[in-house]
Design a protein around this nucleic acid. Structure first.
Length: 515
RNA sequence: GGUGAGGUAGCCAAGUGGUUAGGCAACGGUUUGCAAAACCGUUAUACGCGGGUUCGAAUCCCGUCCUCACCUCCA
């Protein structure tokens, strides 16, 4: 079993082999920070997070870099409205970080700002001019598309056909360009607008064009050859095409090994735009659904297909997830009350050295023991095969549903032995975590929780807190039911349901969950 | 105009030549004081339409209809 991923550069699934064993160097195109992140961005970055988590599950160390493009026309325009460019950008960056944490996206190794790498960009532009890949025109530097024969290869576009789609904005510059597809590497700034000195006579000051920052920053942090580069599908052309054109002539060899492009959201005919005022931000999303529900929803579709977005579809996904979450909660409650400390989990060992792609999660032995060991093994096998097949999350989820169904069918709810329950609990939560669904309780699985995007510090953080009122009402209800006063018992239940508390009776007692 | 993706049961969605994908919803049954949850079953031998290849097609080929995206800033 080996990991295969779809490489946009070849339009094929390829065996995933990193340049350096056990290490994945990955660069993700981040946001142009002029507006807050919305649900579309969230899908993209949740995918990258799942990708990263799957690499880690497979035993790789992921060195991830993500950037902020913090200088651009829209930022300059936005900065004019009283908020300076820098303050606007920094505010958006803070919002992005906050939203990512809220969605349980794990931190990257580095978050780079385009304006922190001006020197590197200037140097790159200068070298492109030297090598004849760029030219200066009235203080502006253009990249010469015809100097790079492979231009258009990544996005499969014929350069000459690009003329047809030329917009008004492109026509403005067309007279000054040698080829209509030539793009800006450096441009002079208008008076009073952010500008940097270059030390070059023909293009003394100004600011970098879009594209060059990603070439410069990825190379600065990850070197001249790295494993994975990507961003939303919209970046394929022109952004990534241009990045390749800028980078390969300078490094002199193929630059990026695997290109990945997650698809966009399909808003089902509704345009989401600032002017319509219907942009759904991450806080809007989290006001209606929990982070684990949102992450589950994002994982319900393959990353290379459009994800239809609608509140109804989110509800549908959440209903399915509830079935899995319930089992996680039931197991946790049993384990907490049954004092799982005595559970004899097998010890791990270092018996073999294996390549990352052949290595399962380090703590696998802690969830493949006990009464459900065989079910767990089969589940892991199916889950891993699906994820190894170009991150086929929907199929992996199907395997999880199957696993949960079989656990129920095998009578997991009536078990009391922690040696059986704890491994199943760990197996479920460890694989949920691949999707960014972080629901394990630290006291039951500290080794997993410590690695969460936002490690929970108390039991209450992962489960429900001390709700004394609910417990008291349920005690009253239980007493009423014992006394056959069902009218009173039902009244209490009705009140609780109206307050958003689901009540379930079972031979083992009554459990509740917040809805 | 050019390029690409896709149309799979009421809804969502995997699957790309041959064994029930899976989930949601609805309904029936078991269970329950009644519910909820769980379990069993039904909706469901589904693959836009028309041909062709094949022992066999959702999957390959030809044609056709429809939807969407991109080609200009976009995750």
């Amino acid at each position: 079993m080996a990991l295969r991923i779809f490489n946009t550069a070849t339009r094929q699934q390829e065996l995933f082999v990193t340049a350096q064993p056990k290490v994945v160097r990955m660069y993700v195109c981040g946001l142009t920070v002029y507006a807050p992140m919305h649900i579309g961005h969230a899908r993209t970055y949740c995918f990258w997070d799942t990708f990263r988590r799957w690499m880690e599950y497979r035993g790789y160390h992921v060195i991830g870099v993500i950037n902020y493009t913090d200088i651009d026309d829209r930022i300059i325009a936005g900065g004019e409205g009283g908020l300076g460019c820098v303050d606007l950008a920094e505010r958006m960056i803070a919002g992005f970080r906050r939203d990512c944490r809220a969605l349980c996206i794990k931190d990257y190794a580095a978050y780079t700002r385009a304006t922190d790498f001006i020197e590197e960009q200037v140097s790159m532009v200068a070298r492109l001019i030297e090598k004849g890949h760029a030219y200066v025109q009235d203080g502006e530097v253009f990249y010469s598309v015809s100097s790079f024969p492979r231009y258009g290869e990544l996005s499969r576009r014929a350069v000459d056909e690009l003329e047809v789609g030329a917009s008004g904005r492109v026509e403005e510059d067309v007279a000054r360009k040698r080829h209509p597809a030539d793009f800006t590497l450096w441009k002079p700034s208008e008076p009073g607008k952010p500008a940097w000195s270059t030390g070059h006579e023909a293009w003394p000051s100004g600011r970098p064009g879009w594209h060059i920052e990603c070439s410069a920053m990825s190379t600065a942090l990850l070197g001249e050859h790295f494993d994975v580069h990507g961003g939303g599908i919209d970046n394929l052309f022109p952004h990534h095409e241009n990045e390749v054109a800028q980078s390969e002539p300078l490094c002199g060899h193929p630059w990026v090994r695997y290109w990945l492009h997650p698809e966009h959201l399909d808003l089902r005919g509704v345009k989401m735009s600032k002017s319509l005022g219907n942009v759904v931000g991450v806080p809007d999303l989290l006001a209606r659904h929990t982070a684990d529900e949102v992450r589950w929803f994002y994982a319900t579709h393959h990353y290379r297909t459009k994800l239809p977005f609608g509140w109804d579809l989110l509800e549908q996904a959440a209903a399915g997830y509830a079935r899995i979450k319930r089992l996680v909660d039931v197991l946790a409650e049993k384990l907490v009350t049954a004092s799982c400390t005595g559970a004899a989990l097998p010890l791990g060992d270092y018996s073999s050295q294996r390549e990352p792609e052949h290595r399962a999660a380090r703590l696998r032995h802690t969830f493949t023991s006990g009464a459900f060991a065989e079910l767990s093994e089969k589940f892991i096998e199916k889950f891993a095969a699906a994820m190894d097949d170009d991150l086929n999350a929907p199929e992996a989820m199907a395997a999880m549903f199957d696993y949960v169904n079989k656990l129920y069918a095998a009578g997991v709810e009536s078990r009391t032995d922690a040696a059986d329950l704890l491994p199943a609990y760990r197996c479920l939560t460890a694989h949920l975590a691949v999707f960014g669904v972080e629901v394990a309780r630290p006291e039951l699985y500290p080794e997993l929780c410590v690695d969460y995007a936002v490690p929970p510090t108390t039991a209450a953080a992962a489960g429900r807190g001390g709700d004394g009122v609910v417990d008291k009402l349920l005690t009253m209800r239980t007493e009423a039911r014992k006394a056959k006063d069902f009218a009173k018992g039902d009244m209490i239940r009705k009140l609780l349901i109206e307050a958003g508390v689901e009540v379930e009776d079972s031979p083992q007692g009554t459990r509740w969950s917040a809805k």
